[in-house]
Design a binder for these strands. Structure first.
Length: 567
RNA sequence: GCGCCCGUAGCUCAAUCGGAUAGAGCAUCGGCCUUCUAAGCCGAGGGUUACAGGUUCGAUUCCUGUCGGGUGCGCCA
């Protein structure tokens, strides 16, 4: 609808140019918005205010010129000038309800577009170190990252989901030492306990498993505990495999799947780290100082240069990161999005600087970053800081166990990533009107129940008849519902462009609210078969959009709700 | 000290690349269950959008500064 109106305005602008009332080279940006107040019509445009200067008139006068020049259109009943110069469009019932047929014809494809044109995009998210169970922050990354992927797919992109494992380095060493200490029966309070060792209960389980000779089957390797507490190398491999499996199970419970698991260690094995370093040296962006090798990141906007190779000969973490992102680029991903916690912010400049210094024709802004802020978990009015299993943090599994997958996904994805998030466990687990997840799902279930109820009464929904009789929908709320449905494609587009899945969540809440209001005020199963078919048809369109939207969030669309009493 | 994010109703948050009278939910108060699921609906009160300037037809949104909260600032990852 907005598209049609935009075209109409464009035609009008062209006519006015021909009439000499606008400079021929004027190209004002045409915007058509939904109105917030139905007294302002169905849609509004600010075109007169934007282009008044070009026409040398005040906005209201100019709006009149535009309205007078508007060509006849079958979708328009009238256009009014209001406020400082808005043009308010009132569209016909037929035009408003046309979206219903569109939805029912396109079913699960409705709202999607092909603006990505099948181009490859890679999204890296979660990327937790295999040193413990996933925590809430990883959960937010998983929810936001997965929703971003779903949005990109809905916008026609060819998406690869990737998880980067830091399976090398000091943290893993620390992990191995911690497990070894547990294998030897030591606890965090013992003098011989490794400094900064991992203290969580899962380390005990891990040590027991190793000493029991368990076999760990993870995605790409099997490892059997050697029961030898002195074999640190065996412990290291076993621990990584064990925790990778644990994280995989967490992600599975969250229904987040990855296409590629990329191991940091493979960058060393394949010589890609060394190759990147040699290129940086060759390009003249490095120097030695104090026994270390430095990268001149200041030439690319950093506030100081960074050490690449430490005095002990090892590389700092961002060096394999640079090699990794070069690899992404070489794999043909013209667009890469990294979803990670805001505490990794400092890496952005370094990685981008390193990529530029490689002189590989990588665009300066590559890759894109979506950073999410911290999550605070509340329960019983108090902040929850620890879980038994992990010790120092709340795990993703804790949340899923407490409130379920759907609610966890919703709450972690329903806020702008750049905002700090308070996760209220009591709210998320409440099966009541307080809880937006259930509110949206309930709207979907209610619509499904309409068909069930009709079936019980021996009535059939005649879809074709319903589509023919949409003109019978004369209630204000019906038109508002249709206008809300028509917004869905734009929500997908905007949320996809901005990597803001929370906009989908907000939209669904609004749509559900519109529906509940309509449902309570107007009976759907009425005696008049034509009106009944028309109303059922409208509600089925609502159901379809709710289902499509919930799918974008990775949340189920139940056909009926389990009543609280049944639990 | 420097970088980044944030500051909107008592609380949790929205506000469609700058649009009309800043919206929801919770909480508070008042209505609605012989009627398709009351897990719901309708209504009321509640705001100097932290503060001060600037840009313009118009600012919660953009710019500058101040204050406040968070986070990062290692030859750790």
């Amino acid at each position: 609808m907005k598209q049609e109106l935009s075209q109409l305005i464009q035609q009008t602008i062209d006519l006015l140019k021909e009439a000499g009332k606008l400079p021929a080279d004027a190209a004002p940006k045409i915007m058509v918005d939904n109105t917030k107040d139905k007294a302002h019509g169905d849609y509004a445009s600010n075109i007169a205010m934007v282009s008044a200067k070009l026409a040398g008139m005040n906005p209201r006068q100019w709006a009149e010129e535009i309205v007078n020049a508007l060509p006849q259109s079958p979708i328009l009943t009238k256009a009014e000038i209001a406020g400082p110069g808005f043009i308010n469009f009132f569209v016909t019932e037929a035009a408003s309800f046309a979206v219903v047929e569109d939805i029912l014809n396109n079913t699960d494809q409705f709202g999607r577009n092909n603006s990505g044109q099948g181009q490859k995009v890679q999204v890296e998210f979660v990327s937790a170190n295999p040193t413990g169970p996933l925590h809430v922050g990883h959960g937010r990354g998983a929810a936001v990252g997965d929703c971003i992927c779903r949005l990109l797919e809905a916008n026609g992109w060819d998406v690869t989901r990737e998880f980067y494992y830091n399976d090398a380095g000091a943290q893993i060493n620390n992990l191995a030492l911690s497990v070894q200490a547990r294998c030897k029966g030591l606890g965090p309070d013992d003098a011989a306990w490794p400094e900064d060792g991992y203290r969580g209960d899962y380390i005990v389980d891990l040590a027991n498993s190793f000493m029991a000779g368990d076999t760990i089957e993870s995605a790409d390797q099997n490892f059997t505990g050697t029961k030898d507490a002195d074999d640190l190398e065996a412990i290291r491999h076993f621990a990584v495999a064990y925790l990778r499996r644990e994280q995989d199970l967490d992600l599975k419970a969250f229904e987040v799947d990855f296409d590629v698991y990329f191991l940091e260690s493979s960058l060393y094995e394949d010589g890609k780290v060394e190759a990147a370093v040699q290129t940086l040296i060759k390009n003249g962006y490095t120097y030695e100082d104090g026994g270390a090798l430095w990268l001149k990141t200041t030439e690319f906007g950093d506030d100081k240069d960074r050490v690449m190779r430490k005095k002990d000969g090892g590389y700092t973490y961002f060096v394999p990161d640079v090699a990794y992102h070069l690899d992404k680029w070489q794999r043909g991903f013209g667009r890469v999005i990294n979803e990670q916690g805001a505490d990794h912010h400092s890496t952005i400049t370094r990685v981008r600087a390193g990529l530029q210094a490689l002189k590989a024709d990588i665009p300066a802004g590559f890759p894109d970053y979506v950073l999410h802020q911290m999550v605070t978990v509340m329960k019983g009015g108090e902040e929850v800081k620890i879980s038994k299993r992990a010790g120092s943090y709340v795990t993703l599994r804790d949340l899923i166990d407490e409130v379920g997958r759907d609610a966890t996904r919703y709450f972690l994805a329903a806020r702008a990533p750049s905002s700090q998030l308070t996760f209220d466990i009591d709210l998320a687990r409440s099966q009541s009107n307080d809880n937006p997840v259930y509110y949206i799902q309930y709207a979907h279930a209610r619509i499904c129940s309409i068909l069930r109820k009709m079936n019980e009464q021996g009535l059939q929904w005649d879809k074709a008849n319903g589509l023919n009789k949409l003109e019978l929908l004369s209630e204000d709320q019906e038109k508002l519902l249709a206008n809300a449905l028509a917004r869905f494609p734009e929500v997908i587009k905007v949320a996809g462009e901005n990597n803001t899945p929370h906009q989908v969540a907000n939209y669904l809440y609004e749509l559900a609210s519109e529906f509940h209001g309509y449902y309570n005020n107007h009976k759907t199963i009425v005696d008049d078969a034509d009106l009944r078919d028309a109303r059922v048809t409208l509600t089925q369109a609502v159901r379809q959009v709710l289902a499509n939207g919930l799918d974008l969030l990775g949340i189920s669309a139940p056909e009926e709700m389990i009543s609280p009493e049944a639990e």
